[in-house]
Each structure stands twice: as C-alpha cells, then as structure tokens.
Design a binder for these strands. Structure first.
Length: 686
RNA sequence: GAGGAGGUAGCUCAGUCGGUAGAGCAACGGAUUUUUAAUCCGUAGGUCCGGGGUUCGAUCCCCCGCCUCCUCACCA
C-alpha cells in the first residue's frame, strides 16, 4: 500500500514482483533496500502532495468518484436548455407524473403469439405511458438503445430509437441516463424482430436520479447484512424478496377480511402498559416523563382484549406488533406481528375452525395450494387438521408420562440438560420441546396441555388437570395458540398468585444455596493459597500480589453476601406477607428494595456494575434479582377487577403472522419476512 | 450465552506455503441501427473490517476488538 501511487507498472513495484526470483538468503537485503528507496519516494510524494493540497479536492476514489460521475450527469441533464424549457428547473428530480400504466397491464396489450408465428415488428398495439426504474441498458449504437425497466410487479423492454424519439432527447439520455435511474416514458407498444414486447419511446424523461452505483446487475446483493439493513436495495435487486413482501401484505389484508367477514371487530389497545401481562416474556422498559413512571411495551394483547369482552364487544381482534425482550434467531425477532381474536360464548372448537379455516384459505389463495413446500419438504395445511394429545405425544416421542417427575429428570439428563432448579412445568416443556415438536410437520393442533402450563386458560371440561387449549404447529414452528378463556376471577387470581409465589420460593432456596457456596469458595481459595505458601517458597512481591487478589476477592464476596442476605430478606417478606394478590403490597416491597438501608451503597453500586458488565461469575445471583424486578410477575388488579364484573365465556386465539408468512413464502428466516429486522447498530465513523 | 464460517474494487467473488492483490459486472473513452446478463477494443479504480505484535517485509502468521451468517441454548 505504501507505494501504491507508483501504479501497477511502477518500477519499484515491478522490481518487487521479481522477488520470487531472488534467492532466499538475499531477499532480506533486497527487501531492506527496497524499503529504503520506497520510504524516500514516499516522503517526496507526501511533500509534493502537501504542496498541492487545497488547490483542488483531488480526484477522489472509489465510491466517491462514481458518485461524482453521476452527479455530473445529473447537472448536465438538469441544465440542458431543452429540458429546462420543457420541464423547468431540477427536471431530474421529477414531479407528479400522471396517467401511468403499470407494466403488467401494458404487457397484456400484446396479443399472444401462436406457436411458430413470427412477430410483426411494424404493428403497434397502442400508446401508453410508464414509469419505472431502469435496470439494464444495451446500447446498439448511437441511434438505438434497449433498456430493461421494472416497476413493482413486472419488467419490460424499452427502446430509445432515433426513428421514434427526438434526436436531441436521445443524445442527452445516451450521455446522462444511468442504471437505476427512475424514468418516465411515453411510447408505442410493438414487438421487436426477435419477438420481445417493447415500448418504443416517443418521449422519455428522468424522474429521479440514482447517484450511487447499483449492485451487480446479474448477481444482485448476496450480502445478507446489506439486504436487511438496506432493504430497499434488496427489494429492487431481488424479485423473490419483492414477492415475499407483497405476499405478506396480502396475507395480512386477507386475514383482516377473513375476520371481518366472520363478524369480528378490529380494535386497537395500548402498546404502552404499566403492567405487561398476558405472556411470560420479558418486556422492553421505557419511561413516561409526563407522569414520571416506568412503562413497558406490550408482550401480548390478551388482557385488554378480554376487558373488551367484559365491556360487551363480543367478537374482537387486534392485529399488530408485540415486543419481547428475548433472544433473536431464525424464528424470533424482538418486535413481531400477531393477531389475537376473542369470541364471546365460543370455545376452543370455534378457535380451531377459525385457525384451520384461515390458514388453509391463506395457503390456497396466496400460493395456489393447501400444501406448501418449506425447506424442501411439503407441509399440508388442508383442513381439518389432526388433533394430537399433548401427553400422548410426550409419551410417544419421549417415552415418559407428564406427571412422572423421575422419568422427566432422567430424560432431561439424557438430553444433556440439568433438571435441578427447573419447575415441573419447565421440565415437561423442555422434554416436549426437544422430543415431540420436531415431529409436528404437517399443520396440526396439539391439545390437552397440563393446566399448570396455561395460567389464563380454562380447565378441560372432562379433566381438571388438563387445559382446554390448543397450540397449532406446522413445520416444527408454533404458529397459533388458543384457549377456552378463563373467566372465573377467583380462580384467575389464585393462578397468578401461585405462579408468583412459586418463583419466590424457588428463588429463596437458590439464594440460600448461593450464600453457602460463596463461603465455601472463599475458604477453598484461602486453603489453596496457604498450601501453596507452605509447599514452595515465594517472593515478597508474589506474596503481596497474592494478598492483593485475595483482598479483592474477599471484598467482592462480602458485597455479594450482602446482596444475598438482602435478597433472602425480601423474598421472605414477600412470601410471608401471605396473600400476594395485592399489587400495591408488591409495589411497596419493591420500593423498599430500592431504598432500604440494609443494602449498602457499595453493594448497590456492585449490583449496578454487575448488571452492566458481562461478568458471568455471579450470573445466577443477577438472574434472581432480575426476577425480583420482573414486571410480568406483577399481578394485574385492573384485569381481575374486570373479570369480577363478569366476562362472557369465550374462545381466544393468537397467531403469528411472521411465521405464517415464512411458511407461505418459503422463507428460511423470520428476517426474510420482516422488512426491517432488528440489527445491531453499525459503529458510526467519527 | 457456546461453537463454527466469514468480512478483499461500487457489486459478485478469486488469490497470496509471508515478497507489495486479480477476474466478471458496474464506471470512463471508442466501435456497433433489433439487443435482451448484448458484443468487441482500450482506460482508470484497493486502508485486503479495525487495533496491536512477530518480521527486512503482513492482506496472509499470532493476540485483542467490531460486524454478519449458520448451528445450539434462551424465549409458552
């Protein structure tokens, strides 16, 4: 790089290229000499450059040069006297362009050729105006240029020919029209001699200039990062991407129409909530300045929608964005789109009919078949979908009964997971997730989940241990989830309280263990240091550095212990306050947590540092404290109050639009069906 | 969070057992009046992701960091 200015044919460079012929022993000498010469030339060059600097901006390099070239053409086009006379100032930045015919429609004006029929290039099929982006250019000569242009749905050929188009316009466009410019054409439709439907332009003007170089005209953009970050490029360059997002839009519109036709009312409920309820995910936190309170982005729409059932709106749905502060992978994006629908006086059966009806309709209408192909394998969506019993699936694929605690533990260990610290429900879920879900390929309903897994769901009418619930799966993905909704406020409160109390009890145990562990660790460490000291003589410097480390560790451990003691204290208070149904009590306990004098400033700072650092040593401790402040465990009094006014029995269902779209569009990743998926921000150049 | 792959011209990608980086497309100049990823001749274009180290010499080897993808884990 240092002697790049010598150019590809620079003498020094040519000499360096001969290095391979120099004997190995002589290479260092030659190289050293070359460096000396190179440094001298470089210095002289730098000096010369410094003298010239300021005189001009320099040629510029790379993308900047390409941009300058396009800007020069823009200027030339905009300042052309004819263009100014016809369109006024800044013509290349366009304006309203009326009566445009979509390319797909223009193409329909060409009568289909019969087998073996020669197209008559002299016959015209009418005049149209089109507006489109120019993606390919084939200059035959100064008199004839073929272009390929594309609009949203189709592409076609345009010819700029001196027999049809004014010579001056042709000459100007020949010099100033770049790939990816957006152009408006008036012209006649006629075949070429080779039978290509073509618009023979009689008038053409640039409507918008593309001043950055476009990607490879044939390969398009392969870099997925660019496709996600700059989706507009992907949409222009990849027809399949355009098709996917058009399909997604149609799927959303069709879903709305399907629900509307069934008499559902579309409603909108708050995205900003004080208690993010209805699901067990962690929420995004934000702050409302006006009221000085923390708020959360919704993780589900379930609770407000049920309040509307109480209010007498009998069939409601909301289609919109949910936000979950969880992992990101091929089937999860932090913000995603679902719809939830609730039907008063209905139950699970209505929701099944709704789900399989809607999804098979979408598949049929948008892909032309109720069987689609995903990752190379067919997935059947034709209704009715099989109903599969959760516990039977568990038994069949994992070989354990859902209430067989020891069997579940055994299976988990087989799978390489540690069952300790997991709740019974976690275990069932983990085993089901690893053993059974992978067999759920064709669309199906999994029913009769254990009731503990479904806190907002009615128990099964025939078996109080089971939930009256289904999860719909296709291609191993969960695509929908439905309940016969729980409307008994007392039962509902008990379930929420149980869920909360369970966590607190577990955490209490964990904290005690943690405290013991810390004592043990520190003792071990001291023993090891002592035995080291005893076994081998060490220098004073070493002694003092060991002492220093040990002191640091002790200090850290005392801070951790302080935290643990405090955590135990809170957990005790919370659990022993008996009935935890009162949201206020819980909130007060948290206020205490933040303010208490029992937790020293140093410990609090330590906790803050712990949160911001990626240190994994005290990850478990941190997790427990995170759980103490987990807003999804807050008990929503308002919701219980609504239920106390009477909610009609109802069926409710939620469906993931992104995942349905993935399946319908054949997309491997959720990022391929979200226009602007979450990406880590790029580092800004200063 | 763990492991694996990757980051080279505007785009798509080669390459260097460490000796000063190449092709196609795009760009620029020219030829060409029915092409269609047009063709032909010529020209220019690079912080080889960033920072350190080893070396006469690093795009290549070593260390640290950033970003992306894939697999797994987490996420009803």
């Amino acid at each position: 790089m240092r002697i790049a200015y010598l150019g590809k044919k620079g003498k020094l460079k040519a000499a360096m290229a001969q290095m391979g012929t120099v004997s190995k022993e002589d290479r260092p000498k030659v190289g050293q000499h070359a460096n000396e010469v190179g440094a001298k030339i470089e210095a002289a060059f730098a000096e010369a450059q410094a003298r010239i600097a300021g005189a001009s901006g320099g040629a510029g390099a790379g993308i900047e040069m390409l941009k300058q070239e396009r800007l020069a053409k823009l200027k030339r086009y905009n300042e052309d006297p004819q263009i100014v006379a016809k369109y006024g100032k800044d013509a290349a930045w366009g304006g309203k362009f009326e009566n445009v015919t979509p390319i797909a429609e223009a193409l329909k004006k060409f009568p289909p050729l019969k087998e073996g029929e020669q197209p008559k290039s002299e016959t015209a099929f009418g005049k149209v105006r089109i507006a489109a982006r120019m993606t390919l250019r084939r200059d035959q000569s100064k008199k004839l240029i073929f272009l390929t242009v594309q609009d949203q749905d189709a592409s076609m050929q345009v010819a700029l020919w001196n027999q049809k188009l004014n010579e001056q316009t042709l000459a100007l466009l020949r010099d100033t029209l770049d790939l990816w410019d957006i152009v408006g054409f008036d012209g006649e439709l006629a075949y070429t001699q080779k039978g290509e439907p073509t618009l023979w332009a009689t008038e053409a003007r640039i409507l918008s200039k593309c001043i950055l170089p476009p990607p490879d005209k044939h390969h398009g953009i392969h870099d997925k990062e660019i496709r996600y970050r700059q989706r507009y490029l992907d949409l222009i360059a990849s027809p399949e991407s355009r098709r996917t997002f058009i399909l997604r839009s149609k799927a959303v519109a069709r879903t709305r129409r399907y629900l509307d036709e069934k008499g559902f009312l579309e409603v909108e409920t708050p995205v900003l909530q004080t208690i993010p309820g209805g699901a067990a995910a962690r929420p995004f936190k934000t702050h409302l300045n006006a009221l000085g309170i923390d708020m959360y982005l919704r993780i589900a729409t379930e609770i407000p929608l049920k309040k509307l059932l109480v209010g007498g709106l009998e069939k409601v749905y909301e289609l919109g964005r949910l936000f979950r502060n969880e992992g990101v992978d091929y089937s999860h994006n932090p913000e995603f789109t679902t719809f939830e629908a609730y039907q008063a006086y209905g139950n699970l059966d209505d929701m099944m009919a709704l789900t399989e009806g809607l999804v098979s309709t979408l598949a049929q209408e948008l892909t032309g078949s109720t069987t689609i192909t995903w990752r190379g394998k067919p997935v059947k969506f034709a209704a009715p979908w099989p109903r599969l019993d959760y516990c039977e699936l568990l038994k069949k694929h994992a070989g354990v009964a859902y209430d067989d605690e020891a069997g579940l533990d055994r299976k988990l260990k087989e799978l390489g997971e540690d069952p300790s610290g997991m709740t019974h429900v976690d275990k069932i879920d983990a085993v089901f997730g690893s053993c059974a879900e992978e067999h759920l390929w064709d669309a199906c309903f999994v029913i009769n989940q254990p009731v503990e897994m479904s806190p907002l769901c009615k128990a099964h009418p025939q078996n109080p241990k089971l939930a009256h619930r289904f999860e719909a799966f296709a291609a191993k993905l969960e695509i929908a989830n439905a309940y016969s909704e729980l409307n008994d406020p007392i039962e509902q409160e008990n379930r929420l309280t149980d869920q909360f109390g369970k966590y607190m009890n577990d955490d209490l145990d964990l904290l005690s263990e943690y405290q013991d562990q810390i004592d043990k660790d520190l003792a071990d460490l001291e023993n090891r240091v002592n035995s080291l000291k005893a076994s081998s003589p060490i220098t004073d410097a070493e002694t003092s550095s060991v002492a220093k480390v040990l002191a640091q560790l002790k200090e850290e451990n005392s801070l951790v212990k302080n935290l643990v003691r405090y955590g135990v204290h809170i957990a005790h208070n919370l659990v022993q306050s008996g009935k935890l149904g009162s949201n206020q009590k819980f909130a007060d306990a948290f206020k205490n947590f933040a303010r208490t004098s029992e937790i020293s400033d140093r410990s609090r700072k330590f906790l803050v540092d712990l949160r911001s650092s990626n240190q994994s040593r005290h990850k478990d401790l941190l997790k427990i404290f995170e759980r103490f402040s987990d807003p999804s465990l807050l008990i929503d009094r308002d919701f219980l109050c609504a239920l106390e006014h009477g909610m009609p029995p109802a069926g409710g269902m939620g469906m993931g639009i992104d995942r349905i779209t993935m399946l319908l569009a054949g997309a491997d990743s959720i990022r391929d069906v979200i226009l602007f998926p979450l990406m880590r921000p790029e580092e800004k150049q200063p």
